[in-house]
Amino acid sequence: MKLKSLFKFLTVATLSFGSISVASADSDAEALRKVYNEKKASVYGVKGILKLNITFNGQAQNQEAPLWSNATCIGDGILVASYASLSPQLGAGRPGLEVTKELEGLKLINAAGEEFDAKLILHDEDLGLAFLALDPKGENAAGWKATAIDISKDVELKHLDTTVNISRHNTNFRYQTGVTKGSVATILEKPRKSYQIIGASMSAPCFTTAGDFIGITVASSSPVAKGQQPQAVTIPAKYIRNLVEQAKAKQAELAK
């Protein structure tokens, strides 16, 4: 494969995780709307530039790709997102290919289109989670106001349970929030509990109809499914909680 076409392939194949198609059926739209209205302000858009230095069989090329993702505020200036949407796996294991990535100009965007500088502070490749923090030295940091969602509860879902999935659109939809009614399709027990939720958006949160936080949808690659495309799975709150302390420690370093 020629280097140029390989770059194209990498970009197309890895930067565009689409959301899973939306389920239909409407049981109690009013209750779902209530959850949506309570939680939507915690969901931010994330944009940045992914700078790539790609070396393939000795030929090097620099590429830049704009990123758009979502992140959910879970604490004071700490947000959680899908790691793959910010740092996609590129050409892993392909002989002769070396990719170095650098994330630049990371910004959080609210419904009003206000932008806040942010930093990627922690990631967990196994879980597919990334933690971002508001950059306290960044522009507009003083104007940051966000309501964190409560991630302290663990919820157990059953197949076909209804979920409320909230995401924030990019500039095409003027950064508006979107909501879908989801449905639990698959429950994975191993290596850890996670859900495949129809209607969930990548890097965005899912809630129960009662408004309890279920988790964040990430791109997951099973170590036993090498070479296959990552799957969208929702990682439950407890795994996120386990990493919050580490994220806080990293967040504290930003202020130094």
Binding site: L120, I121, H123, D124, D126, L127, Q246
Partner: peptide, 12 residues
């Protein structure tokens, strides 16, 4: 200076 938005890996 190189961009510093490189996150740390979670401790496992």
């Amino acid at each position: 200076q190189p961009n510093s938005s490189q996150s740390a890996a979670a401790q496992k």
